[in-house]
Design a binder for these strands. Structure first.
Lengths: 244, 244
DNA sequence: CCAAAAGTGTTCACCCTACACCCATGT
DNA sequence: ACATGGGTGTAGGGTGAACACTTTTGG
């Protein structure tokens, strides 16, 4: 039997779904869109769409990201492949394999609706995941399809990756202070960190932060130095997440 | 436009490819199969095959693993999803998205050929990757398709995962000595580790190893205690890979 | 006896934590 | 003046690296 006989394999639809994370108001938030059609009409879901015939998976993810948020990857945001979900029952109408991608973005202006979504919003991942985990009466409802599971996997990936990489800077604007970076860690991990030790740690790790020379008082108090993300991708030693 | 109109999205073939790693003769080895058909006829490739209509991705990977090696996952071996590869040009005939999986297995009997492969072999990853990276005259040739890249990603995943998880025990038989476990780390990382400090470290990490009470002299020298893998999945503190 | 592998003890440097303390701004 | 956040100093405990040393087998 030839493995490429067209009758020898079943056809699949392939989509990309996006876990777009940002930090707003001291909370880790994810982008969700309201579904305009059945199934799960009116429910919240992750943004995403079909992969086109001539594009790679990462290109499809970047295109969907631009369509849904206006954000361009490699322009402050980080995009990486997360995992692929292919349960035969995950879409009730047909066999769909979804390649989920993770995007870490700085705090953005209000998202714009795009594609086939009626509207889009930022919501705290705690809200989205507890809604997803439980059936509630009223407005709250779990995310469509298996998107609750996908979001949880993306959040877990982000939480562990900022520990040993410099990815936390992807949540910050181009220039940021040590305190702003610390609040990113605190929001993503949901813990309080010692400001003094944090400062010593990140400024002492070579290649993590590059001072720009400027200062700012936008957080109040004494003027703080501004930094850009340094070139180092891996943190050695890593940031240590406090025990739970 | 309806996103589920059958004419609105291109059809894909979805496959699983397997990076099956083991430690043989002090070297990290991967399973490769000889391709029986065009394209890349006669070249070495990773084992894999089409996902069937009614099975999940992990089920497809476990089925292919059993077909190619006779190995059953969850029976000593570890199986996890690695990444998904979907470049439009990765297969010259049609659009194929491949969900690669990583398998870590103890040293096995000689592999049996299965599925559509003429033959199968274990080869050191160094050999497979340098063959893949360079064009050689004669018998050596790069792996088919983008399998060199997939193998490299799998090796990198294995190298980093044994650092902070107890997965290295998946390379060992059900009962093993501290020295045997150390030789796994040395083969996967390609470094020499201090036997004394390694012993103290792994036996001092609670939940990593469980003594069975037995001893063995199969490695020569003083009898060594035998251990089974403990329940702990995450190592805290992690094993530290020496600087390069 | 000797080689080889398994374990144990000890020392030193470094790093993480905790917290006291000082600095520079806005109101 | 004082509240607020930024930043430095320092002492104590824990851990990893290096290596001397003892233990227990096979040949």
């Amino acid at each position: 039997m030839s493995p490429y006989d067209p009758s020898a394999f079943p056809p699949f639809a392939v989509t990309v779904d996006l876990v777009v994370l940002t930090v707003r108001h001291h909370a880790l938030c994810a982008l969700s869109v309201r579904r305009g059609e059945s199934p799960f009409q009116g429910r919240w879901a992750l943004p995403g769409g079909f992969v086109r015939d001539d594009e790679d998976l990462s290109q499809a993810a970047a295109r969907e990201l631009a369509e849904e948020t206006g954000l361009r990857a490699q322009n402050g945001a980080h995009l990486e492949q997360l995992a692929t979900y292919g349960d035969p029952q995950r879409d009730p109408r047909m066999r769909v394999v979804s390649v989920a991608h993770l995007v870490l973005a700085p705090d953005l202006p209000a998202p714009r609706a795009g594609g086939d979504a009626r509207s889009a919003r930022w919501a705290s991942v705690d809200t989205l995941l507890t809604e997803s985990g439980q059936d509630h009466a009223g407005d709250a409802a779990p995310l469509a399809f298996d998107h609750g599971r996908i979001l949880a996997d993306g959040v877990e990936r982000a939480r562990s990756k900022i520990e040993y990489s410099s990815l936390a800077t992807a949540f910050c604007p181009p220039e940021f202070t040590v305190g702003e970076l610390r609040r990113v860690y605190e929001a993503v991990w949901g813990v309080a960190l010692d400001p003094r030790n944090f400062h010593r740690k990140v400024t002492g790790t070579v290649g993590f932060l590059v001072p720009t020379g400027g200062t700012t008082t936008r957080q109040g108090g004494r003027p703080a130095q501004l930094f850009r993300a340094g070139g180092a991708a891996l943190l050695n030693p890593p940031m240590l997440r406090p025990e739970v």
